[in-house]
């Protein structure tokens, strides 16, 4: 309870601190460069040049210290030894190129990158198209969307109950094996079977992300001009043709956005692998490998190198996003 009080106190102090900062900074500026007297015109111009930076200062300071500086520092760290102090040149990168686990992670990440965004977007698109047509659609949407609110670790516990494996002959308490046995198959240890276990871990993320894709794509589908659809109806197009040939091509832009957003998430995914397998049984991924080297390996140089690989993989999407926003701004 005591620490909740501390939290509330910090929150209040933080909010009041912010307000006080902005208030005092503005007052000081107004006092230093008064908008009256002989230099009124010059003062107003100067004050207007300074004021944006007063507004921006706290945000820029926090972003600078907590995001920009660490990124630059990580680049440096990737050229240092385990303690992050001695320059070792390209040693970490050479080690990385030859590391078995790294190759495994890279391969698995490639799989994740292909399967998860594609499947989530696909299911999201289907769910959006179907739920938009029925009266209880918003209720259905809410239920499909709900996993978004669940933490990756919580989701892992949920799916542990689905994937659980008991030896052949005993009662299965995992849903998947129960279904398999009921259909006449024999139970499998889904999570510990190398290679295929990757897909069962991916299912968890697809389960979480489909709702996100659905919500965005559903809004895009509703934004399609009616005339194009009416024209297709008049031309005698079937509902399926209308969907795939008329509607989907008009929302390519949004599909790309959904796809890239999920792609970024996939590159950073770590909780699911950590909680379900911790990278055993051939299921390691980059983010968890990095975590492993940081915490268990205690090697800051190698961990930073792996982080940098993730960063490099994200960079193309980052550039693409920035270009899109700039295009938007110019319009």
């Amino acid at each position: 309870m005591e620490q909740i009080m501390w939290a509330l106190f910090t929150m209040t102090a933080g909010v009041f601190g912010c307000v006080a900062y902005f208030f005092v900074a503005n007052r000081v500026l107004d006092a230093a460069l008064p908008a009256r007297g002989e230099n009124a015109g010059r003062n107003i111009n100067r004050a207007n040049a300074i004021r944006p930076w007063l507004f921006l200062f706290p945000a820029l300071a926090v972003l600078g210290i907590y995001l920009v500086y660490p990124v630059l520092n990580s680049i440096w760290l990737s050229f240092t030894d385990a303690s992050g102090t001695r320059f070792v040149g390209g040693d970490n990168w050479r080690w990385l190129a030859g590391d078995e686990k790294f190759r495994e992670s890279l391969g698995n990440n490639a799989l994740w990158l292909i399967v998860v965004p594609a499947a989530s977007t696909f299911f999201g698109l289907i769910a959006a198209a179907l739920t938009d047509r029925i009266r209880w659609g918003s209720f259905a949407k809410a239920l499909i969307f709900m996993p978004m609110a669940i933490s990756f670790v919580g989701a892992s516990v949920i799916w542990k109950f689905v994937y659980d494996y008991r030896g052949e002959g005993s009662d299965q308490i995992g849903l998947l094996n129960a279904v398999v046995v009921a259909l006449g198959g024999s139970p499998e240890a889904w999570i510990t079977t190398p290679f295929w276990n990757n897909f069962f871990l991916m299912v968890i993320l697809i389960w979480i992300q489909t709702g996100f894709a659905m919500v965005i794509l559903s809004a895009a589908l509703r934004g399609i001009p009616e005339e194009t659809i009416e024209a297709a109806v008049l031309d005698g197009a079937s509902p399926l043709q209308i969907f795939w040939r008329i509607k989907v091509p008009q929302i390519w832009g949004t599909i790309a956005v959904v796809w890239t957003t999920i792609t970024i998430l996939v590159l950073k995914v770590f909780d699911i692998v950590l909680a379900m397998t911790n990278g055993q049984w051939g299921s390691q991924v980059l983010a968890n490998l990095m975590f492993d080297w940081m915490f268990r390996g205690g090697d800051f140089g190698r961990a930073s190198t792996i982080a940098l690989v993730i960063m490099l993989l994200v960079t193309p999407i980052m550039v693409w996003n920035i270009r899109n926003v700039r295009k938007e701004e110019r319009r």
Binding site: L63, P70, S74, A307, M318
Partner: peptide, 13 residues
């Protein structure tokens, strides 16, 4: 640009 920076980059520093 900062929207998509992987947290992993920032942890150790």
């Amino acid at each position: 640009g900062l929207l998509v920076v992987p947290l992993q980059m920032t942890l150790i520093p």
